Simulated assay, not measured.
Amino acid sequence: MKPCKLCQDRGVIISNQVAVPCSCNRQRALFNRFKNAGLPDGLRECTFERFDFRFYSKQLVDPVHKTTYYDLARRAFRAAENFVRQFVQDPHIDGLLISGPVGSGKTFLAACMANALLQEEVPLLFMVVPDLLDQLRATYNQDRQPAGYTEKDLMDAAREVSLLILDDLGAHNYTEWTKNRLYSILNYRLNYRLPVIITTNLSLEKLDEYLGERTTSRICQMCWPCHLAVVDDIRMVRRKERLQEK
């Protein structure tokens, strides 16, 4: 973030010989909330207003959910909006499990919720599951410099934050150690009624296969399921559109 032109990052300006808070204070507080939440820069512009329904077919019907791709997207979108609205009133509501193939808008929708709640000053963590597991492993790797945190620091943050968003809970190489860490996080949050938003490209059956019955059972107990379906990877479609515009 560039230095403030008014106060040069001092936080105050002199007006009529009196020191008053600079208008950048709120902007910097918001910037720090985004930074501390772990939301990647590329997702900070994801908003409900920018969610594009044109990628979801009104003709194709999902064979499992027996409704069109478009209707599934509308349901997931409403569930996400409702979660944000209700969470502000009650931080102990059920979370969401957003499933769908790669490039179906799962992460975008999760980021929409994160951005909306950060504007409301809600403490949250946005964690990409493979990155979280790598960070946990790194605390035990003697060949790598620690990043100033321990395994307990990471686990406590994931367990205790008001809202945890776990992005890309997919078909990774889960060892018993990593499966136990995910179970510990989710079990703690279930017991203390702290919601979690999860995105995954796996079905519940596949989640059970990769994570185990006890972890999947807790996810089902904590989260309402939503599904997104697309014909083509939205990221690839957008890239083609940008190339055609040049």
Rank of each mutant, 00 (worst) to 15 (best):
Y140K: 14
L136A: 15
A73N: 02
L154I: 08
P101R: 11
D71A: 06
E160W: 03
S99L: 08
R28Y: 12
P130E: 09
A229D: 07
A19E: 15
R238W: 02
F87E: 01
E151K: 06
N187T: 05
R214L: 03
A158M: 10
L243C: 06
C22N: 10
Y174I: 06
Q59H: 08
L72C: 03
A157P: 02
Q244H: 13
L117C: 04
Y183T: 03
C112R: 02
L182F: 08
R235A: 11
Q89F: 09
Q135E: 13
E209C: 04
L39V: 10
L132K: 01
D62F: 04
N191A: 14
E209A: 11
T47N: 06
R50F: 05
V20F: 08
C112N: 07
D153H: 14
D153T: 12
R214E: 10
D167H: 02
D131M: 05
A110Q: 02
D9Q: 09
S104C: 12
L163G: 01
N187F: 07
I198Q: 01
R193P: 01
R214T: 08
R181N: 06
M1E: 11
Q17R: 12
C22W: 11
V64A: 14
H172N: 05
Q27S: 12
K5P: 05
N32I: 06
K5L: 14
L97D: 00
L136P: 09
N82D: 15
I234W: 10
P3V: 07
Y192L: 06
Q145P: 02
Y140R: 15
Q145L: 11
T68V: 10
C46N: 12
K179M: 07
S99R: 05
T200N: 08
S15Y: 14
K5I: 12
I198P: 01
E245V: 05
R181I: 05
L118A: 00
C220P: 00
D232L: 07
D168N: 15
F83R: 03
V18Q: 15
H92V: 09
D156W: 07
T199A: 09
Q142M: 13
T68R: 04
